[in-house]
Amino acid sequence: MSPLKIKKGSTSHSAYDLRSTFGDEVERHTLAVIVENEPGVLARVIGLFSGRGYNIESLTVAEIDHTGHLSRITIVTSGTPQVINQIKAQLGRIVPVHDVHDLTVEGASVERELALFKVAGKGDHRIEAIRLADIFRANVVDSTLESFVFEITGTPEKIDAFADLMRPLGLQEVARTGVAALSRGAS
């Protein structure tokens, strides 16, 4: 049995030295959340993340089943395993949420993101940009004499890498869609 430490009256210690958490490694997870396509459902999901202090690295949403009124929200988030479990349980609690899939633990999955890059430059920079775009299998979707708009799809890491290369070559603007993800194989 534990030793008894009984104190009477007041204590000089602060009342506020609160809790240590489970303190595990931070992991990155991709969640697919199937929701009823009703007004406010995205606000509920986002409100949950901001209200409880969870991270959102990327979030995409679109209707996937018009007759069934279902949308799919793909969220990339990070946290300790305990936090990730909480996020999934909290998402599952939202009334219009039908299903929560953790693609990171439910076997192999594919992740893709689409991005548009505006790169402006002349001479060698312009040639280099086109060459690199070719290597990354980016398409030119707009061009003027001083600029290109590249369209690229791939994993977020590939898009990050492309951004790093374009930066010294006159990168002006980037638009990214965020991650869409599916599990591999038949469902």
């Binding site: 049995m1 008894l4 009984i6 007041s10 204590t11 009342a15 030295d17 609160l18």
Partner: peptide
């Protein structure tokens, strides 16, 4: 007090603390 474990309770003036330590201690 918040942030304290259960066995670090503050007790009231009239609680029989002496007896408590003895009693519980006796069962250790």
């Amino acid at each position: 007090p918040s942030g304290k474990p259960h066995n670090e309770m503050l007790l009231g003036e009239n609680a029989d603390t002496a007896n408590a330590i003895q009693g519980a201690g006796g069962a250790l």
